[in-house]
């Protein structure tokens, strides 16, 4: 085929359908370029300069080196991983347990289901107030129980004790975000053919065997997606931690996003802040790649 005919065919294909496709596609590309690609590239660009906002001077990867070699970087990274993993795993487990309970035809199941949406709907600040109140060393009901049952001798200031601050923040987060896993898993559970369980019972399977061989395989895809998106969200979570403890006491709840905020707005080091944000981005990307290779969640979704 000559070049001339090839060009003609290409122009000839530019019919209404293709025009419509272009007309719908181009705005989308433009939108994502403006609100995603440009800020990301701009931020990554900033990370290569010292004082990028006032008197920019190119320093290459020096900002990255500074951030990575900072004495406290391992602690912040550990805090981030600890927070993200613990809140993701526990919100998954608690969401799963509650979904299994509600999925049984129990009395009050629908009330429980409706109530489960409230933590997710409540503003983060309100959730923090609730838990600070519950954990309060003077008037909090949890401390009263702990003291009256003899678990501790004197009340514990959970949010401001270095030993318990991360625990308190994690509990608050799990309480708020557990319903996310709950609703996804409940929807999946309700889609399972009840005859499968009846067949398993007639074939002699115990409740545990039926759970392992029917329920879990059906939930696998949903669990993998929850782990992925909840894990990423919790790794990047800023508001609930910062509003509850501000990263303290003594940096025990300072995760990487909080450190980014401190660098940018307390120390006015935008180069360092963007460099650290870049490092977070690359860490998550690496984890996501390994995750997709290992579990192939897209296969599950296709089912």
């Amino acid at each position: 085929m000559s070049t001339a005919t090839a060009v003609r065919t290409r122009l000839g294909d530019l019919d209404e359908r293709r025009l419509l496709l272009l007309a719908t596609f181009v705005p989308l590309v433009a939108f994502f370029t403006v609100v995603w690609a440009v800020p990301i590239v701009y931020a990554l660009g900033m990370s290569l300069f010292a004082e990028p906002t006032t008197a920019p001077s190119f320093v290459g990867l020096a900002n990255y080196l500074d951030v990575l070699t900072a004495a406290e970087f391992p602690l912040f990274l550990w805090n981030s991983v600890l927070y993200a993993v613990s809140t993701t795993v526990f919100s998954l487990l608690i969401g799963l347990a509650l979904a299994l309970v509600v999925n049984q035809q129990i009395r009050g199941g629908s009330v429980l289901r409706t109530m489960m949406i409230f933590p997710y709907l409540l503003p983060t600040l309100v959730v923090i107030f609730i838990w600070q109140f519950l954990f309060d060393p003077n008037i909090g009901v949890i401390n009263q129980w702990l003291v009256s049952y003899g678990v501790v001798e004197s009340p514990v200031a959970f949010f401001s004790t270095s030993r318990w601050a991360m625990f308190a923040v994690a509990v608050t987060s799990v309480w708020k975000f557990g319903s996310f896993a709950f609703f996804i898993l409940l929807a999946r559970l309700q889609a399972i053919d009840p005859n499968l369980y009846e067949r398993a019972r007639v074939e002699g399977a115990s409740t545990w065997q039926a759970f392992r061989d029917i329920t879990l395989p059906h939930l696998r895809g949903a669990i993998l997606i929850i782990l992925l998106v909840r894990g990423i969200w919790m790794f990047n979570k800023f508001d609930i931690i910062y509003l509850a403890t501000g990263g303290g006491p003594l940096n025990v709840t300072t995760t990487l996003p909080i450190r980014v905020y401190e660098l940018a707005f307390n120390e006015v080091n935008f180069g360092g802040a963007t460099a650290l944000a870049g490092i977070m981005f690359f860490l998550l990307a690496a984890v996501a790649v390994v995750y997709f290779r290992a579990f192939e969640p897209e296969k599950e979704v296709a089912h």
Binding site: D193, N195, E198, A205
Partner: peptide, 19 residues
Amino acid sequence: SPQDRNCAMVFQSIALYPH
């Protein structure tokens, strides 16, 4: 319980374990 009876059952919905 069904587990304790040596029954086998073929369901109307076939009920094959999909995975």
